[in-house]
């Protein structure tokens, strides 16, 4: 089965790319954009069919590699 993961920067951590995207969108006359935070998305195919078990395994992957918990949060979808 496939498990989807989103990794984002924690609040308060500087995100210069997000800031640049926000400023560009503002410059393109999307004046309603207040803030952009850029993140990462992972599509992980695992050889486990049980959803709960698969998510437990992916949670371990997030903690050990996919996210750096000093600066990032992750969400398993």
């Amino acid at each position: 089965m496939k498990v989807k993961v989103i990794v984002t920067l924690k609040e308060g951590v500087l995100d210069p790319q997000g800031k640049a995207i926000q400023q560009t969108l503002n410059g393109m006359s999307f004046s309603e954009v207040k803030e952009v935070r850029q993140g990462k998305y992972f599509d992980i195919e695992v050889s486990i069919n049980d959803e709960e078990k698969a998510k437990v395994k992916v949670d371990e992957m997030c903690k050990k590699l996919l996210a750096n918990l000093v600066i990032e949060d992750y969400k398993i979808l």
Binding site: V13, L14, P16, Q17, A20, N68, V70, I71
Partner: peptide, 17 residues
């Protein structure tokens, strides 16, 4: 070294990109 946890913290992208 920070990624292995041997040193604390992390190196982020430079402030001015």
């Amino acid at each position: 070294l920070t990624e292995t946890g041997l040193l604390p913290g992390v190196l982020l992208q430079n402030k001015y990109q």
